[in-house]
Amino acid sequence: MTTDTRERGSTSVFAVIVVAVLMALAGLCIDGGKALNARATLADTAEQAARAGAQQIAGGSLRGSGGVTLDAAGARSAARSYLTRSGISPDGFSVTVTGSEVIVTLEEDVPTTTLRLVGMGSVHVHVTGTAHAAVGINQEES
């Protein structure tokens, strides 16, 4: 049996390319899953912090105007307290209170493991959670 010297080693090149592609796909699956998990966890935390803030209703707003207004300082404090207890770094979030709405924004860089080999050291995750103060059963929100 004779072998053609022009084809010698072509299987090795093919194997290297296939292994590289499979490693990249594994990296996308592993690190993509980590990023999706971190996004879901952060989204839940942001929503819960916003709900904690939306519970801080200004007492006079219920009796006087019939509308619901938040105690802005109390809402910010409650949301920040919830985030701190959840282990979120103070420079990784912002809390905004407007009228009867609390908006919590979280950002985090999720470190990668496999994709680090191709120069992608982390994935940036940005989520926003919003909550409105409850206005009652028969009253529509304005």
Results as ranks from 00 to 15, higher is better:
Gly32Val: 00
Gly92Leu: 15
Glu7Leu: 14
Leu83Trp: 00
Val16Thr: 11
Ala40Leu: 10
Thr113Asn: 09
Leu83Cys: 02
Leu25Asp: 01
Asp71Tyr: 09
Gly9Pro: 06
Ala38Arg: 01
Asp71Pro: 01
Phe14Val: 11
Arg6His: 09
Gln48Ala: 14
His126Trp: 11
Leu42Asn: 02
Ala75Met: 06
Val135Lys: 00
Leu25Met: 12
Glu47Gly: 15
Gln56Arg: 14
Ala20Ser: 12
Asn37Asp: 13
Thr11Pro: 04
Gly64Cys: 14
Gly27Leu: 00
Met23Ile: 14
Val68Arg: 08
Glu140Ser: 13
Val104Phe: 02
Ile30Asn: 01
Gly129Ala: 08
Ala131Pro: 05
Leu22Ser: 09
Gly60Phe: 08
Gly27Trp: 02
Gln139Gly: 04
Thr84Asp: 11
Ala58Cys: 07
Ala133Leu: 02
Ile137Phe: 08
Thr114Asn: 10
Ser122Pro: 01
Pro90His: 01
Ser12Cys: 09
Ala15Asn: 03
Thr3Pro: 07
Asp91Val: 02
Val21Pro: 05
Val123Lys: 00
Thr114Trp: 10
Ala43Glu: 11
Arg80Ala: 14
Ser89Cys: 09
Ala24Arg: 07
Gly119Lys: 03
Glu101Gly: 10
Arg6Ser: 04
Ala79Ser: 13
Ser122Glu: 10
Ser77Gln: 15
Gln139Phe: 09
Ser65Val: 11
